[in-house]
Amino acid sequence: MHLWNLFVAAILGLVEGLTEFAPVSSTGHMIIVDDLILKSNHLYGTEAANVFKVVIQLGSIMAMVVVFWDRFLNLLGLKKNITREQMYGERLRLTHVITGLVPAAVLGFLFEDYIDAHLFSVNTVLVALVVGAILMIVADLTRPRRPKTETVDQITYRQAFVVGLFQCLALWPGFSRSGSTISGGVLLGMSHRAAADFTFIMAVPIMFGASFLSLVKHWGAVTPETIPFFITGFISAFIFALIAIKFFLALINKVKLVPFAIYRILLAIVLLLLIWNR
C-alpha cells in the first residue's frame, strides 16, 4: 500500500464528507475527482472504485447518525426521560420519516436499472446541477416571509409526503438530495433549518440501505490490499462530514439556498470544461 494511495483516499473522503449533505451535489464533485484522480491513477480497478465510493458514503452516514443520535433514539422509542408532552404532543415521529421515504423508495426500486444505464454521465449530471440550482433559487425567491413550520417537530404528514416527492428528483444524479428536499420544504412553508433537519434524518435509512446493497454486490473487491485504502477514505469522510453537517446546520437559516445555487452553476461550468478538454 503506497502512501500516495492513502493520501488519495483521504482526499476523496474529504470531498465526499464536505459535499454529501450540502445542496451542491456530491455526485458532481465525485465525477470530477473520479476523472482527475481515480481514473488517472487506475486505483484497483472499477469494482474497487465502486466499493470505495460506497465506503466513504457510509462514513458520511455515520457522521449524520452521530449528529442526530438523540433524535434517532427518540424516533425509535429508545430515548429515556421522554415527557408525556413529548410523547403525545408535537414532535417528529418515525411515521413522518417513513412517509417521506416512500415515494423515492418506490420510484428508485422501479427505475433503478434505467437510472444506472442512462443518468450516470457527466452530461446528465451537468444538466441536473443547473436545473437543481434553478429550483433552489425559485424556492428562496417565492418562500413565505415567515415560515409556518419553524422546527422539524412541527412537520405535518402532508409536508413529509410532499418533501418525499421532491426527494424523487434526487434519483437524477447531480440534482442533490438535500438540494431538492430542502427546496421542497421551503416551498411548503418550512424554515430552512427544519427542512434541512428532516432532509438529513430521512437520508440515513435510504442511504444506508442503498450502500449496504451496493457493498454486498461488489464485496469481491474487498481484499487485504484495498482494505487500508477503504478505511482511510471512511475515516476521512466521517470526520469531514461531521464538520460539514454541523457547519451547514448552523449556517442554513442565515444564508439560505441562493449561494449554494450559484456554486452549483459554477460547478456545472467546471464539468463542461472537463467535457470539452477530453
Rank of each mutant, 00 (worst) to 15 (best):
W4M: 12
N5V: 09
F7T: 14
L14Y: 12
E16G: 10
T19E: 03
T27A: 04
H29K: 11
M30V: 10
I31N: 03
I32R: 08
V33W: 02
I37P: 06
H42Q: 13
E47R: 12
K53R: 14
G59I: 10
S60D: 04
V67D: 00
F72N: 00
L73C: 06
G77H: 00
L78T: 01
K79E: 08
I82D: 05
T83W: 12
T83Y: 12
R84L: 15
Q86S: 09
M87H: 13
Y88I: 01
E90L: 03
R91F: 02
L92K: 07
H96E: 00
V97Q: 06
V102F: 11
V102I: 15
L107W: 02
F109V: 12
L110Q: 13
F111H: 08
F111D: 12
D113T: 15
Y114S: 10
D116R: 15
A117N: 14
L119E: 05
S121K: 10
V122R: 08
V125E: 04
A128W: 02
A128N: 06
V131W: 02
A133R: 01
L135V: 07
I137H: 00
D140E: 15
R143N: 05
R146F: 10
K148H: 14
T151D: 13
D153N: 12
R158T: 15
V162S: 05
G164Y: 07
C168R: 05
C168P: 09
A170D: 02
L171N: 07
L171Y: 06
S183A: 14
V186P: 09
V186H: 10
L188K: 09
S191W: 07
H192E: 12
T199C: 15
A203N: 05
I206P: 00
I206C: 03
I206G: 05
F208A: 15
L213I: 09
L213A: 14
V222R: 03
I227N: 04
F234W: 09
S236W: 07
A237I: 12
A244L: 06
K246G: 02
F248H: 07
L249W: 01
L249G: 00
N253Y: 06
V255C: 10
F260R: 06
L267M: 14
L267F: 12
A268C: 03
I269W: 11
W276R: 14
N277E: 14
N277G: 08
